[in-house]
């Protein structure tokens, strides 16, 4: 197994900052612009990229990412396109962590073996399936593990600590994605008051780095979270900006 995700967190830690995990819905506003934005994010300092695969029924997503997914689908962007993009990014950026962020049906429908082969060959480091909890994940892990591809578990605000430990068990070259709020993806003005305590509690028991996501859109939020987590995820804010400005340039966060 490669160590790119582990290394990305270690590098950020050495620089005394949280790792910047950036999410893009691939295919929005176009496939070409997604690739440009991915390059810009990496050059601008993102440590790990989450490549979101557009799905027809994004029931865990808020409005921004849903609209982006529908637009990408309208242009015919598929899982295979996202995997091909990962391969191009991997060639250009040998050190950046690449996470494929998807709804489970897209990879299940392709066939798990075929998907895992493609992911491994394209330099994808880990897979995150939104709707694949602990109870159901073994059939996917069974094909990812032998190919050296990691898996990113989601931890919700109401996930008990014993279950957090269970979710982290047996995984490497990955991180725990800590969902900050009960709800769908999308920027929020305020993060929940008990979030930082929650992050401390999870960090204390996890052998994996932890990154907080859902609702983070500003530098101030990212810094506040980074004091209690190993990294932070920004998604909707970047997708929205890309939609409005057509590109990502300058400071990554306001």
């Amino acid at each position: 197994m490669n160590h790119r995700i582990t290394d990305a967190f270690a590098k950020a830690k050495a620089a005394k900052r949280g790792a910047f995990v950036a999410y893009l819905t691939i295919g929005y506003p176009t496939l070409a612009k997604s690739e440009e934005a991915a390059d810009a994010l990496i050059e601008g300092g993102a440590d790990i990229l989450e490549l979101g695969v557009p799905f027809s029924d994004p029931f865990a997503d808020g409005g921004v990412i849903r609209s982006a997914a529908y637009e990408a689908l309208r242009q015919g962007v598929t899982l295979d396109d996202v995997v091909a993009l990962a391969k191009r990014l991997r060639a250009k950026h040998p050190e950046t962590g690449l996470v494929l962020f998807t709804y489970y049906n897209l990879i299940f429908s392709k066939g798990l073996e075929a998907f895992a082969d493609a992911a491994a060959q394209s330099g994808i480091d880990a897979v995150l399936a939104v709707d694949l909890p602990l109870e159901e994940r073994e059939e996917l892990l069974g094909v990812l593990r032998p190919r050296g591809v990691g898996y990113v578990p989601l931890i919700a605000p109401n996930t008990p600590l014993e279950r957090v430990a269970e979710s982290a068990k047996g995984l490497e070259n990955t991180f725990l994605y800590i969902i900050t709020v009960k709800g769908t993806t999308g920027a929020r003005a305020e993060l929940p008051p008990d979030l930082l305590d929650r992050l401390d509690a999870i960090r204390a028991i996890s052998h994996l780095p932890i990154a907080a996501g859902f609702g983070i859109s500003t530098k101030a939020q990212a810094e506040a979270v980074s004091a209690h987590a190993d990294g932070f995820v920004v998604g909707s804010a970047l997708v929205k900006r890309l939609g409005e400005e057509g590109e990502i340039k300058g400071e990554l966060l306001p």
Partner: peptide
């Protein structure tokens, strides 16, 4: 069958 839901729904389920 099964329980293919977002993690936040596992506790309520």
């Amino acid at each position: 069958g099964g329980q293919y839901v977002a993690e936040t729904l596992m506790a309520p389920l």
